[in-house]
């Protein structure tokens, strides 16, 4: 299709439309799109429902959005709340609000500043979270950086290259006052370079492992160097 003849879909106020191929799609107010949407720019300011899948280069949900299918996007930002019944595939995804993804999140870079719930796996090259998240399956990324604030994050398995979990300075202060206890829970953590704080896990396996304050680990297996700092609790450590 010729890119020049793509038209614009705009819902101002309240309305609904069929899906299709567009240049930009903007929902200002409350809108419902029935069918799959392919567009270059996608915006929801207000509340929007897509009864299908979304394929866009640049997408943003400010407000609330529900996508019944999956999302394919180069850039996708969720500032309000999002509910995706399929998977999100893309390059860069930023979650500053809250989002629920029923299946996978497969991206190059993901940044979670709010909260995210992922039904299956999360695959990324770079995973950064300063919010909270729940991954039902595997969190697999080359570089995983988790900064714990005041909420609990949970994942079944973590695997990757560099994995670092730390308490954010301000949260640490609150933790001292016993007001909050931010923690990361995972059954298994496997990686090359692992540095942990406030992490509860059954098994941690890696080349070099550092277990810091607030950690409770049943078993650590390491190949290179193992370090334990602060009040970390490690029941068993094994050099393999």
């Amino acid at each position: 299709m010729d890119k020049n003849v793509r038209c614009e879909l705009r819902i101002n106020g309240c309305g609904s439309s069929k899906g299709g191929i567009f240049n930009t799609v903007k929902i200002n107010g409350a809108g419902k799109i029935i069918g799959n949407v392919i567009c270059r720019v996608f915006r929801i300011n207000g509340s929007g429902i897509i009864n299908g899948s979304l394929d866009t280069e640049d997408g943003k949900i400010n407000g609330s959005g529900i996508v019944e299918g999956g999302i394919k996007a180069h850039e996708f930002i969720i500032n309000g709340s999002g509910e995706i019944k399929g998977s999100i595939k893309g390059e860069n995804v930023i979650i500053s609000g809250s989002v629920e993804i029923a299946e996978n999140l497969d991206v190059q870079n993901v940044k979670i500043e709010g909260s995210a719930k992922i039904g299956h796996d999360c695959n990324a090259e770079i995973f950064y979270s300063s919010g909270s998240f729940e991954v039902q399956g595997l969190l697999n990324a080359d570089d995983i950086k988790i900064r714990l604030h005041d909420l609990k994050s949970q994942v079944t398995e973590i695997g990757g290259g560099k994995i670092s979990v730390a308490i954010e300075a301000s949260a640490g202060l609150k933790a001292l006052k016993n007001t909050v206890n931010p923690v990361l829970e995972s059954e298994v953590i496997e990686g090359d370079e692992i540095v942990l704080e406030n992490t509860i896990a059954k098994e941690v396996r890696g080349t070099n492992v550092t277990v810091g304050r607030g950690c409770e680990i049943d078993l650590v297996e390491y190949k290179g160097i193992f370090r334990k700092t602060g009040d970390a609790k490690v029941e068993e450590e094994r050099k393999v």
Partner: peptide, 11 residues
């Protein structure tokens, strides 16, 4: 191979 490599190849 390392865990990092295995997980990268899986990804």
């Amino acid at each position: 191979i390392s865990y990092g490599q295995l997980y990268r190849w899986k990804r």
